[in-house]
């Protein structure tokens, strides 16, 4: 998996984090760390560009879930700290009503889209296929 970051200024300062390759057990922690780094540096509106992400595993879903946690200003789950930490984090994410406003997804590929729909993540996160609309949605 490769990550690249781009800053865009429209209505609000949006950070685009492009994920290329596969988001799985070997890479999801890198994504969480990057999200934490961006949040610490001031990012409050994050658009995850999935147009070149060709696979997401269940560990990748944990990663995505954790990015939402981080963007809500919560501590990134520490995998070494035990699963209870992740559980707490996921609790924080899921108990806030309404769709996510700080983190959105752009252009998931069909395979990834299918996984997001199958697992209900498309109801947690707004998904856009048009770039202008995605950027303007924050």
């Amino acid at each position: 998996m490769n990550l690249s970051v781009e800053q865009i200024s429209t209505n609000k300062p949006v950070t685009v984090l492009k994920i290329q390759g596969e988001l799985d057990g070997s890479s999801y922690q890198t994504l969480i760390q990057e999200a934490q780094k961006l949040y610490d540096a001031g990012t409050r509106y994050l658009l995850l560009d999935l147009s070149q992400m060709n696979f997401i595993s269940s560990a990748g879903l944990v990663g995505l879930h954790s990015v939402v946690t981080v963007m809500r200003g919560k501590e990134a789950p520490n995998m070494e700290g035990g699963w209870s930490v992740i559980h707490e984090a996921s609790h924080d994410v899921s108990t806030t009503p309404g769709p996510e406003s700080a983190c959105k997804l752009f252009n998931p590929q069909p395979r990834v889209q299918k996984t997001l729909s199958m697992t209900g993540f498309d109801q947690l996160l707004e998904i856009y296929t048009d770039w202008e609309t995605a950027v303007a949605s924050f």
Partner: peptide, 12 residues
């Protein structure tokens, strides 16, 4: 599972 604080998060 949501009440089980020592749980893993996900199950399909």
């Amino acid at each position: 599972l949501r009440h089980e604080t020592r749980s893993l998060p996900f199950l399909t």
